[in-house]
Design a protein around this nucleic acid. Structure first.
Lengths: 353, 353
DNA sequence: TAAGCCAGAGTGTGCGCAAACACTTATTAA
DNA sequence: TTAATAAGTGTTTGCGCACACTCTGGCTTA
């Protein structure tokens, strides 16, 4: 009846064997007679034995080296948040004997990715967290890591090849759906709605394609055929072309109601709208970058969908730690919620853990 | 340069004393010469010593008894979520030597609260989590616990009397503001908007009053004087009166655009609207009760603000554990985000951890 | 002058676990 | 027959910490 903690020793005594034998059964190592194994497993179940994590961590006294392969925040500030998440997780979880080494690559340079990924492979870490923004180029590495049984966790971009330990991020398709709702809601019964990709190589970016599908399907599924959905790919590498493109879109669609930016670059369009003094357009984008936060507070960006990229970094390291150090089962997909952020609630999303 | 872990023993060696002396300094117990103390504290700082939590938990081998004083979910299902949060936290954190005893009271019966709170006091727990829905009646208990140095954490209702260890919950005022935005957004330029309290004793419910203020202030601050804001207190104890009240509100305000329910009872009005086959009203409420989820999916409730009440229970126990067992500093206010939930993203909020 | 006291410091033990190590018996090969 | 090996099991150590315990030497007091 008493709530005493069950130790390996207790199981051993009850089974009439030594703690060493119980240890062998629990860890599937060494040789144990079938008789002893069955008996011990029975008692483990009966007594609901659960290892004491503190004792385990203390006893193994092992350091797990994790590698975080993430883009450079100084090139695209979006990636600052995952980095902070990784660092917070490291500081929270270092008591479990983990250490994280960061491998930072240039998100606009494939060779940089290849280079850093190779370095990760060479370092032979115990676990890997990676933002696989280059789909084709990432696959051979997945294969390598799989073959060497190094668990890897994906975040930001969902791929299921070569069986990653886990994916952390959002459901891109549903995220597009939600964007559709926010773009449509409260905008009258008809009009033009623009979906725009900014600075992206769409063909190699699976998640952007899925967002677009979700967005279009929202209007289809809700029978909103009176809306005119247009799309654009804009690139700031040619800044005057970027402005010209927006100019002509505005000119040719005077009934433009909403603009949906599929990435965290909504602030670029917000800047444009502010400069041209255009109001009344419902601008929707992603993520709490400082520039975006600013435009939400000014009322130029109406809604942001928060992808919680800091959380993605955090949970990635968390999952690896749970798998390696704590030997816990982890979910193979962890969808983070699609947070709707607007002026009135933005404060509570900024830098929350 | 090497990343070695710093132990008490290392500090002792460097200071030329025994580990016992370092222990006395770190825990402020026993007598230590000023000379030794200064030297040790200097080294602690220099080497950035941080105690090994696993070893600490194992070494102290102490059980902290926590009390959770929460309303009965079988009377109001809203309280099921906090209970699940408490239980999840207990199972996650029991490795740190905590055990939670639940004290369940009837949320519609003050005497039941007084009775259970007394039981908590008598049990003399090491820490207390409480939903202080009865403001006046809770104060003497806070005073008692304060005097006995029993840390207590508040959730759901924010009170700052007698210095609780922490408050977990939402900013009610801002929550009302957000509700104002959701009630107003996309509803044209004028009309009537109803705020309704259901089954509540407003005078003793500080957080509902704050929600109402925030709601009204949203319209004031945004200069939306063309909207007609009306309020109602409805009670289902008299069910025909409840329906009659709604009937007459609907009849006298044919331009009714939105209804804001200040609690988790939005489903009651949704049922009414469904039965009467009234569409086109923008219904807003709180919390992911099964009934509310149902009406969101049917499109009758447009938006829910998720108060994450499971999370509130979880974080309450979490904070107590961190304070007591891990001797970590905890934030005195933990505002959970004001999640906007709608049909397209509700799935990702249901029962997430 | 010895007994008593006490501030200040050192020593030892146990928490539950993982893992290295040691031991016993049965089986096989030489 | 003996040695070598395999199979199964038991014993011990150490992880870092908290905390009770022990020890020392200088001081006071009868």
């Amino acid at each position: 009846m008493k709530n005493k903690i069950v130790r390996i020793k207790d199981i051993a005594e009850k089974a009439g064997v030594s703690p060493g034998t119980v240890d062998r059964v629990l860890h599937n190592r060494g040789r144990v007679s079938d008789e002893a194994r069955t008996k011990i497993l029975g008692i483990v179940k009966e007594l609901k034995y659960e290892p004491n994590l503190s004792a385990r961590v203390l006893g193994t006294n092992r350091l797990y080296r994790l590698a975080a392969l993430i883009p450079d925040a100084s090139v695209d500030f979006y990636w600052d948040a995952p980095r902070r998440g990784v660092e917070k997780a490291e500081s929270d979880l270092k008591q479990y004997g983990i250490a994280v080494e960061q491998y930072i690559f240039d998100p606009y340079n494939v060779d940089s990715f290849l280079d850093k990924a190779s370095q990760v492979s060479e370092a032979n870490p115990d676990g890997i967290l990676v933002a696989p923004i280059y789909y084709r180029e990432a696959l051979p590495f997945f294969q390598d890591w799989s073959a060497r049984s190094i668990p890897f966790v994906l975040f930001n971009t969902q791929l299921s090849d070569y069986n990653p330990l886990s994916y952390i991020g959002q459901d891109s398709y549903q995220s597009g759906m939600l964007a559709g709702k926010l773009a449509h809601y409260g905008q009258g019964t008809s009009g033009t709605i623009l979906l725009a990709h900014i600075d992206e190589d769409i063909s190699n970016s699976a998640h952007l394609i899925r967002k677009e599908q979700g967005f279009n399907d929202y209007f289809k599924q809700n029978g909103l055929s009176q809306y005119n959905i247009i799309r654009a790919e804009l690139n700031r590498a040619d800044l005057s072309g970027f402005h010209y493109g927006l100019d002509s879109l505005m000119a040719s669609h005077p009934d433009l109601k909403s603009i949906y930016i599929t990435s965290s670059k909504a602030y670029t369009v917000a800047t444009y709208l502010e400069q041209k003094d255009i109001t009344g357009i419902n601008l929707i984008g992603y993520d709490l970058l400082p520039e975006n936060i600013d435009y939400v507070n000014k009322g130029i960006i109406r809604f942001l969908i928060n992808q919680n990229s800091k959380g993605q970094g955090y949970w990635g390291i968390y999952q690896l730690t749970h798998h390696l150090a704590l030997k816990r089962a982890v979910d193979s997909v962890k969808y983070l919620p699609l947070d709707i952020v607007t002026k009135e609630n933005i404060e509570y999303y900024i830098d929350k853990e």
